[in-house]
Design a binder for these strands. Structure first.
Length: 108
DNA sequence: GGGCTGACTGACG
DNA sequence: ACGTCAGCCAGCC
């Protein structure tokens, strides 16, 4: 089946929207949950196509690169993204997010 | 159907 | 630790 609502980006948004506050997931992580472990790039493409209207309800800032690195082309700006994450209480290790503590698969 | 692009990732030098 | 190269996936021309 392949209705309009089953598009890849729709699944990405739905999954990202379910990321709890203070929690962070990587592009590869999201891709893996969608069943495409090597589709990290596709996930980035999907978030890049994220409409501003959807951005309000989709916590795109909770999606970072492998190792917790903030993508240089993330949304309105990498600084905004990291700032938003910090506002949620996410711990940073320099310019890198502490996935061991806030990772989706990481323990509480 | 072929080729290009990109909010990625891991390997190399 | 840093810059570069090649591989992968989905959408658009």
């Amino acid at each position: 089946m392949s209705p309009a609502g089953d598009r890849f980006f729709a699944r990405v948004y739905a999954l990202v929207r379910q990321i709890p506050r203070g929690r962070v997931a990587t592009y590869g992580q999201v891709a893996g949950m969608l069943g495409v472990p090597r589709g990290a790039r596709a996930v980035g493409w999907a978030l890049r196509a994220l409409p501003a209207a959807q951005a309000a309800r989709v916590p795109w800032h909770r999606v970072v690169g492998a190792g917790g690195r903030i993508s240089p082309r993330g949304g309105p700006g990498p600084q905004i993204q990291s700032r938003r994450l910090r506002a949620e209480g996410v711990r940073f290790r320099g310019a890198v997010v502490d996935l061991a503590r806030h990772g989706v698969l990481a323990g509480e």
